[in-house]
Design a protein around this nucleic acid. Structure first.
Lengths: 343, 343
DNA sequence: TTGAAAGCGCTAACAA
DNA sequence: TTGTTAGCGCTTTCAA
């Protein structure tokens, strides 16, 4: 890897403005102890020269780290790319850089990435995406983040609750409940669930909502088939095949995210099973393509871009004594993939 | 923003290993001048202690910058998120961090982002996304990148040819030609184009291919309606409305990317115009949802993830005397959105 | 092959 | 309000 070249330094600016290094530094960092008159002259000179501080020197000297580490399961999954978009927007407004990395839905790999970000001395860490139902790994992650925070780092997470840090919490349970209620209202009684991997808390939470909806109507949740596969389009395909094979009389499939729902629709299309005439399908998230699928997908809308924005905004606020929680709303969006139960 | 906290330093490792700072540094950076015996002992100790070098200190001291700057138009556009996925994959394999930023399809803003990345002392810059048909801004960008390279920085671009740097070049023109030929083969003669903003070279190149296909058959390109709108889903909607209004006898619409094609399909669906029975539609890129649209989209497949991978791999190679060019193939993927011209 | 010491460009005590 | 100066943790001459 290349070396950085010689560039404009703060001394150059200071000299040109006829002040000391310290005064120049104070002027540009907006610290007080400088007369506004001098400060603005320095800023002026810096701007003219096109000076930009060397972040490495600045950080090393004990200044602020100006980068944000963002951990997503996979950036080319629309759910995460929309969140990333929100984070990058806010970062851009604040002049911060965003360092992005993948966790690949592997808790150990995720922990490694987090450690790497900390070693890289980012100032803020945002973790997007489901937590894991494994208390040991969550505890390890929590310990790492706590240590990071105690050294002055800031953390916010999206959709995880077990980490003891500021969190933006999409309403997974209520969303699941809304989905279940919607199908029950349409008269469906033989509903199957294409669920993601059992190890993900998002799956658990959404599932809890669905089960709650059944209980609300006095139905027995135990009778509902739940198929656990990957929390991806491909997982949706495989789950659907299993559902069609083992429970051929199913009239509605709940996919616990839109990616899975796309897999569900794809298999149904392949098997020429009409949606929603013979089978209703719902998803969760409302990624931007959900409206363009055929049939367009009934789903629960989560404001992903805002989730990303809120998370970074939360992390950038002065630290509070205890972890803040920002619940986010959800909205059932009824489209063409759901209809009355057949017969 | 927080300060970095006290952490393990190289001196600690050196002390623990019973060597000097210099030797420890040499051992860990793999530089020679150390006996293999000592070096491996130092590495061992570092590993035990979980030591990770402070990148700020390392870079400041004239070492290598280990981060990659990635500029995309918009990360929540599937085309770019897939490219980003590829870049992040390779970066992960090499232990590099990826700093991502948006250009928002604005050449001036893009240039600002590039300058910011350079100021941040990234070692590598990858620019994804169309160039601009404005020679002045391209020249400015080129100058900036050239200066960056002459200071040891590495650059690679995806889908831009005017920058004089290593480039991965998707076959836009041949892809456009394939699309045109496909529709002509199906008997379409009244074809309209939903093109992106005229200022983008990608639009120009794909358009050139389409026009070439017409000329190949001895048809007059001048007769084909071309509507320029934003290179997005929304632009596709607006273009379609204009096409339907001004050229109601059109039998096929070529959208110059899949995002626009999704807008096209959406408007046609809204107006109950059957696809492909009454109107054929094609896109370009083959983003992963293209196969899940209804009808599934005929398009030109570009290997986006590979584009991202190749770009970073190219940038990481030792610099060559002149700019390298890696053309990438394309493949027409015929799905359900195209059919014979009506009557 | 190893070590001592001089910076890299900046911030933050401390002094004036 | 301003300036002087001592580091931040590392790499890299230069000497040994």
């Amino acid at each position: 890897m290349p070396k950085p070249g010689p560039r404009l330094r703060l001394v150059d600016v200071a000299e040109r403005a006829g002040v000391s290094l310290a005064t120049a530094s104070r002027s540009l960092t907006g610290r007080d102890g400088v007369s506004e008159e001098v400060a603005s002259r320095v800023r002026q000179v810096a701007a003219e020269l096109g000076y930009v501080a060397n972040p490495y020197a600045r950080t090393l000297a004990g200044g602020a780290s100006s980068s944000v580490g963002l951990v997503v399961h996979q950036v080319d999954d629309p759910y995460f790319s929309e969140i990333a978009g929100g984070v990058i927007q806010v970062a851009g407004e604040q002049g911060l850089m965003v360092q992005i990395c993948h966790s690949g839905r592997d808790p150990h790999y995720e922990l490694r990435q987090i450690r790497h970000l900390i070693a890289q001395r980012v100032g803020v860490i945002i973790i997007a995406g489901s937590g894991y139902n494994d208390p040991r790994i969550e505890a390890e992650t929590k310990a790492e983040l706590t240590a990071f925070q105690s050294l002055g780092g800031r953390v916010a997470v999206i959709g995880r609750h077990a980490l003891g840090v500021d969190a933006v919490l999409p309403d997974n349970e209520a969303g699941g409940r809304a989905l279940g209620a919607h199908l029950l209202d349409l008269g469906h009684r033989r509903i199957a669930v294409a669920a993601g991997t059992g190890g993900l808390t998002t799956v658990t939470d959404r599932m809890a909502g669905v089960l709650g909806a059944l209980r609300d109507r006095g139905l027995d949740p135990a009778e509902m088939p739940v198929v656990h596969t990957d929390f991806t389009r491909d997982g949706g395909c495989r789950a659907t095949e299993r559902i069609l094979r083992d429970h051929p009389d199913t009239t509605a499939i709940i996919a616990l995210n839109d990616a899975m729902a796309m897999g569900v629709l794809s298999v149904l299309r392949g098997q020429k099973i009409p949606v929603p005439k013979r089978m209703s399908v719902v998803g969760f998230d409302d990624v931007s393509v959900a409206a363009d699928l055929a049939p367009s997908l009934t789903t629960v809308r989560l404001p992903m871009t805002d989730l990303g924005r809120m998370a970074l905004e939360l992390a950038l606020k002065p630290k509070s004594a205890r972890a803040r929680r920002r619940p986010t709303g959800h909205r059932l969006v009824v489209r063409d993939s759901t209809g009355p139960a057949p017969r």
